[in-house]
Write a protein that binds this DNA or RNA. Structure first.
Length: 106
DNA sequence: GCCAGGGCGCTAA
DNA sequence: ATTAGCGCCCTGG
């Protein structure tokens, strides 16, 4: 497995329940700026039953990027943890986006 | 090897 | 608010 994947997964696992992050945000936090697309790949490669909360990752517009049944599954998981969807099928990022504590300085 | 298409995103118009 | 163009990297044909 690609070493970057481990960092991607580790970052995603920091997203608290009931909050969401965007692909670009994860890429950035994982030290892979500009490679949002790779996040999607990493998640796609994720085996079922892993501890990684893949459902908490959305695109920059606050919507689910998966088509069909997969998307419905993701949505159900999010709703189950308290995330609300608007009529247009989007999530209000200003309300639900995860804002990790900035890196420590010294 | 080249080409096209993806769980994406930013900027410019 | 939308669209077009480009950058990124991975996979499949």
């Amino acid at each position: 497995m690609h070493p970057d994947y481990a960092r991607i997964y580790a970052t995603i696992q920091r997203i608290p329940r009931g909050r969401v992050a965007t692909y670009g945000q994860i890429a950035e936090l994982a030290g892979l700026p500009g490679r949002a697309r790779q996040i999607g790949y990493a998640l796609h490669a994720l085996p079922g039953g892993s501890p990684v909360p893949w459902q908490r990752v959305l695109n920059a517009r606050g919507e689910i990027s998966l088509p069909g049944a997969s998307g419905a599954r993701q949505r159900a998981l999010l709703v189950a943890e308290g995330v609300e969807f608007g009529d247009d099928g989007r999530i209000d990022l200003s309300a639900y986006q995860w804002r990790p504590r900035p890196a420590r300085r010294r």
